[in-house]
């Protein structure tokens, strides 16, 4: 059995360590080693965005990151989005707008959309659609997803004003 690499990272604010092979993707490490199965695998080649996480401050497709690259990095995943027992406005808006059917794409859309709203509180529809171009959905037809992001943006803005 060839040597495994020891990786320490911060995931959703918590220090985490794991052992992995250099060839394993960060997506595999999250799901199969750490049991964090909220992040989904669709294509495994960077196209679908269902494996989106925040890595070192940027959204990336975790299927195209090696687990060993996570050494010393800050990572956030879908598991870190809810505020304790309360859903994040994006999660609530996806439910209310029926912005999901099978749900495989949903964690990726929510992580990507949150990164947008964190940096731009009032994106217009075009901005939302281009920002989310790396996220594919085979079920909803996208309109409901865009509406949900717009609704969540409005809620986040109200919260910030309070």
């Amino acid at each position: 059995m060839p040597a495994q690499t020891h990786v320490t990272a911060t995931i959703n604010g918590e220090p985490v360590q794991f052992l992995c092979e250099p060839r394993q993707s960060l997506l595999e490490c999250l799901r199969d080693i750490l049991g964090m199965t909220g992040t989904k695998e669709g294509c495994n080649d960077g196209n679908c965005g269902s494996c989106t996480i925040v890595f070192d401050g940027r959204i990336v497709t975790s299927c195209l990151v090696l687990g060993v690259e996570a050494r010393g990095k800050e990572i956030s995943t879908i598991e870190g989005i809810a505020r304790g027992n309360r859903l994040h406005p994006l999660q609530q808006a996806f439910l209310e707008n029926a912005a999901l059917q099978c749900g495989i794409c949903t964690p990726g859309f929510i992580v990507a959309a949150k990164a947008l709203l964190d940096q731009e509180p009032e994106p217009d529809e075009e901005r939302i659609r281009f920002w989310l171009a790396n996220n594919l959905c085979r079920c909803t037809g996208y309109d409901k997803i865009v509406r949900a992001v717009e609704q969540a943006a409005a809620v986040c803005k109200q919260e910030a004003a309070r």
């Binding site: 965005g49 989106t52 940027r58 990336v60 990164a115 281009f130 920002w131």
Partner: peptide, 9 residues
């Protein structure tokens, strides 16, 4: 080049 996620890398 690609979308937001690809441009991050």
């Amino acid at each position: 080049i690609g979308g937001t996620q690809i441009q991050g890398r």
